[in-house]
Design a protein around this nucleic acid. Structure first.
Length: 197
DNA sequence: CTACCGATATTCT
DNA sequence: GAATATCGGTAGA
């Protein structure tokens, strides 16, 4: 089965298929250990919930491409666009275990501990060297590659997505149970404080 | 381990 | 102006 075929379907079914997959770029390869699913118009947590914008247009394109976006003023996060084309759904790559190019990853991550190299979506991009320049990049024909792998059915755990306050009840976060590279729990950001003076 | 806080661009109101 | 798919540093249990 081709990668494109594996990525077409309900995003909450596609997302766990990415666990265990190998993602490589810039001399670093990692095994995906944690993902989150984001659907289109029906999912308030998705960037595509309110329709296309310059930022999310890649989500509306063909599957097996990267959707990279800039967030919180300083971080890049990467998603795998899922199909079919025209249906905006994507899977956020939240964490991975570096399995090749560990020295390169450590350099990019300023000497972080091995298990922290890609423990979080922005850290994962940093470890791999992914930037906004990779937004829309193919995962089958370019320098960023994704190869699926089978994982035992019982190894997958699910729970609520991280960092969302709008759609907390969809348990669309998937990770490999017990893996030390899965990102730590963080509560949704507190309510805003008054403007500073 | 949990919790709080600041930095800071893009998007929406 | 306010919210946001975050992270690193610091504080406390």
């Amino acid at each position: 089965m081709s990668l494109e075929e594996a990525l077409v379907g309900p995003v909450e079914e596609v997302a766990p298929r990415l666990l265990g997959a190998l993602l490589s770029h810039g001399g670093v390869a990692l095994r995906v250990t944690e993902v989150e699913a984001y659907a289109g118009p029906t999912d308030p947590g998705s960037h595509a919930y309110r329709g296309p914008t310059p930022r999310n247009q890649v989500m509306f394109g063909p599957p097996a491409h990267l959707y990279c976006y800039f967030t919180y003023g300083m971080h890049v996060c990467a998603n795998v666009v899922c199909g079919p084309e025209g249906t905006p759904s994507a899977v956020l790559l939240r964490a991975g275990q570096v399995v090749a190019g560990v020295d390169d990853a450590r350099m990019r991550r300023d000497g972080a501990a091995d298990r922290d190299l890609a423990r979080g979506p922005a850290r994962l991009c940093s470890a791999l060297g992914l930037t906004l320049a990779h937004n829309g990049a193919s995962l089958t024909t370019g320098e960023v590659r994704l190869t699926l792998a089978d994982v035992a059915a019982g190894a997958v755990a699910t729970g609520p997505r991280v960092g969302l306050r709008g759609a907390p009840e969809r348990p669309w976060r998937f990770w490999l149970a017990g893996d030390p590279t899965v990102s730590a729990y963080r509560p949704a950001k507190r309510l805003s404080r008054p403007a500073k003076g």
